[in-house]
Design a protein around this nucleic acid. Structure first.
Length: 216
DNA sequence: AACGTATGCAACCGCGTAAAA
DNA sequence: ATTTTACGCGGTTGCATACGT
């Protein structure tokens, strides 16, 4: 049977998410949940397809996502689970709280697969340190920490600070400004010229609240 | 300093399937 | 029972940055 496209692609944005889009998505889900991903972008005022929103939320914006390095234990768990389950990334993610299937998949393909290939049973000789760099050249990015977080070594400058924010940032920002914020967002999204001034002001507010630079 | 290559991550695409109509 | 719709998953790609020459 024919399958309808996931969304009407006309006019929908693709590519990396901006801080503004993240704010809109997080705020909307915090307030209304995500009952219907397909309808969500329209309701939230995002020019994205529902699938894209879902992915962004699941892999990045969800408050329960653990940011930071994969521990040695997590890496060993992934290796073990992969031996058991194969490429069942979502099952693995369910067994690793705070980690996403995409993240696990990436870390497997970029680090663990090679490690396993070179050293088929690493778990048989546990190393004393709980957090050991990947097997990479001493000055490679992965050598200073086995970080697979987006923030750690991706270089999207504007996003970098944003990504490093703890999820508490969002709850602080939104709980503090809530109603007025939503009103102002809608005003800027639907009502008019959606100038950057609004967002800059919002980010300044965020900085004041959290005591740390938000995005800029 | 400039250029080419490798690496790592975020995001997209297409398919399978469950749920709804 | 059949068809349609939406969700979730796994594979793949695009792009920015790091590294090497």
């Amino acid at each position: 049977m024919g399958r309808a496209p996931c969304c009407d692609k006309m006019g929908l944005k693709k590519g990396p998410w901006t801080a503004e889009e993240d704010i809109i998505l997080v705020n909307f889900i915090n307030r209304h949940g995500h009952g219907n991903w397909r309808a969500l972008p329209k309701r939230a005022g995002l020019l994205r397809c529902g699938k894209s929103c879902r992915l962004r939320w699941m892999n990045y914006l969800r408050p329960d996502i653990k940011r930071g390095n994969f521990t040695r234990e997590e890496e060993e768990t992934i290796i073990k689970l992969h031996q058991e389950l194969g490429n069942k990334w979502s099952v693995m993610a369910a067994r690793l709280p705070g980690r996403t299937d995409n993240e696990i998949k990436n870390v497997w393909h970029t680090h663990l697969k090679k490690r396993v290939a070179r050293n088929p049973r690493p778990e048989s000789k546990p190393k004393p340190e709980s957090h050991i760099p990947y097997e990479s050249p001493p000055n490679s990015p992965a050598s200073d920490a086995s970080s697979v977080t987006a923030a750690a070594d991706s270089g999207h400058d504007q996003d970098k600070n944003f990504l490093e924010m703890d999820e508490s940032f969002w709850s602080e920002v939104f709980s503090a400004n809530d109603l007025e914020l939503e009103f102002r967002m809608e005003e800027n999204l639907f009502g008019g010229d959606s100038s950057m001034d609004f967002w800059l002001e919002l980010l300044n507010d965020a900085e004041e609240l959290t005591g740390s630079p938000a995005f800029l």
